[in-house]
Design a protein around this nucleic acid. Structure first.
Length: 476
DNA sequence: GAAACATGTCATAAT
DNA sequence: CGATTATGACATGTT
């Protein structure tokens, strides 16, 4: 990079920063011998303001250190994952930790530096373009004027270089946490639907017809189930209430039929909207744990308005949604077949207890088939309810996540803009400081270096050289 | 009457 | 292997 340098002696600025890796070397082209000595061959003009120079140099060194941050990542915004895990330091935190004693010049426009950095910061024109982080960006080109023109408000901010460095260090750290993918995904707004199926299809034979069919229609396809032993275990009829599996969070096991149950002993759950529906059986008050035998469907039918009028009443009183009225299809079927135990038990009892319950009664094949179908449908109904509830909750959760991701994206965008602004300020400041340092340089004969003839270049180790422009061009 | 919605049911796969 | 559960698809009723 500094091929044009044939002489490099560290300056002896009384600057602590100089003791570090950054050293400023007087440099000359191959053909030009500008040898600078540490003792004074190349030192600030003693007639100038030394303290100002020192401070300027301090800031310059700080910025040259900053360049090391930029080197590894040529595309700090386009490729680096960018996850801020904590709020970015506000702008105001960039206050001068090393206040300049200099009369703060208009940071860019007053600087003579542009001649030494011509073209250096053209990439800043578009903050989303490649921000050339290489050291070369500071050398041999002029960017100060462009900078000041591009960023008219940049000079209004005088960030502390050190704090800014800290800040950028933090930001740099935050860049590596893999959020780029999130941002990429955020480009898509995740507008997918719920997946709920509301489609229709050609009508199929409705099983509802079976409800009004004669019991013989329930002949089991397997020719009928086996005989169950007729040993009534009355005491077991209600014992399963406490042992019914309740593994499903959304499950309201007893709501399916309890709200409009044949059996008022079943507690009506408040979640059942059908509670408000007139229930012809609601007047029955049977202690849930008392009866030797649960009221049978036949009993219900006997206690109801009775017979066909009873069925007519409930078939027309299904004011609720769907088939969740006072009497469901299966309830009517069970009623028609005189199933001697409640549907709640049919559905909710564990299989062993269910079989035991069946064993207590002598049921024909039609009844057995219906009971098993009722059990299957009842369980599936609960499963469907749970499934739908889960689906809705997933939708809610995903929407919530989407909102959080959008908020995060906005936050990242703000931080990115802030970072770019800070970077721009830094570059502007760097340009200014370079110009200030450059203006102080004198050769061995005490002559100032012409900004038109020399530029500053820095090596990877932080050393800064004066490089003749023609040599710099040749180096490229 | 159409659309949206809710619920039950079936078929099927998974557990 | 049967019972249970999960879920998509469909049917049906309600708003």
């Amino acid at each position: 990079m500094c091929s044009a340098v044939n002489t490099s002696l560290p300056f002896s600025f009384s600057c602590e920063g100089l003791a570090n890796s950054s050293r400023l070397h007087g440099g000359a082209s191959m053909s030009t011998t500008h040898r600078f000595t540490a003792s004074g061959g190349f030192r600030p003009n003693p007639t100038s303001q030394p303290s100002e120079m020192d401070l300027a140099w301090q800031e310059l060194m700080a910025i040259t250190e900053l360049q090391e941050f930029e080197v590894p990542n040529e595309h700090p915004f386009s490729t680096a994952p960018y996850i801020p895990m904590e709020p970015m330091v506000p702008y105001g935190n960039f206050g001068m930790s090393h206040p300049l004693t200099e009369p703060t010049p208009p940071a860019c426009e007053a600087s003579p530096a542009p001649a030494a950095f011509e073209g250096g910061y053209s990439e800043v024109m578009n903050p989303y373009q490649r921000l050339n982080p290489n050291v070369e960006m500071h050398h041999g080109h002029s960017g100060g004027q462009a900078m000041s023109g591009l960023l008219p408000n940049a000079h209004c901010l005088q960030p502390s270089l050190m704090s800014l460095l800290d800040h950028m260090g933090m930001t740099s750290t935050n860049q590596g946490l893999g959020k780029e993918t999130v941002a990429g995904h955020l480009a898509d707004d995740m507008e997918s639907d719920s997946g709920l199926s509301l489609g229709s299809s050609p009508p199929l034979a409705s099983p509802e017809n079976a409800a009004h069919a004669v019991p013989t229609q329930y002949l089991p396809p397997d020719g009928g189930l086996n005989n169950y032993a007729e040993g009534p275990c009355i005491g077991d009829h209600y014992r399963m209430r406490a042992s019914i599996p309740n593994s499903m969070d959304y499950q309201h096991n007893f709501s399916s039929y309890s709200g409009h149950s044949y059996f008022p002993g079943v507690p009506n759950l408040p979640t059942t909207p059908q509670l408000q529906i007139p229930n012809p059986q609601s007047q029955q008050q049977i202690p849930p744990m008392k009866p030797l035998l649960p009221p049978t469907l036949s009993d219900i039918q006997m206690n109801s308005a009775g017979g066909s009028s009873f069925q007519n009443s409930f078939t027309k009183s299904r004011a609720g949604s769907g088939s969740s009225g006072p009497y469901s299809r299966d309830e009517r079927r069970a009623l028609a077949l005189k199933i001697p135990f409640p549907l709640e038990k049919i559905v909710n009892l564990p299989v062993d207890d269910f079989n035991e319950l069946l064993s207590q009664y002598t049921l024909n094949d039609t009844q057995l088939t219906l009971v098993r179908d009722i059990r299957r449908r009842g369980k599936n109904k609960v499963a469907a309810q749970n499934c739908r509830k889960r689906k809705l909750e997933n939708i809610v959760h995903l929407e919530s996540e989407l909102g959080q991701l959008r908020a995060q994206r906005e936050h990242l965008a703000r931080e990115r803009l802030e970072f770019q602004q800070n970077l721009t300020i830094l570059k502007c400041r760097l340009s200014d400081l370079y110009a200030k340092v450059f203006s102080q340089l004198r050769d061995e004969e005490g002559h100032p270096y012409s900004l038109e003839d020399y530029s500053l270049q820095q090596t990877n180790d932080g050393s800064v050289y004066l490089v003749p422009r023609n040599a710099a061009l040749e180096g490229e």
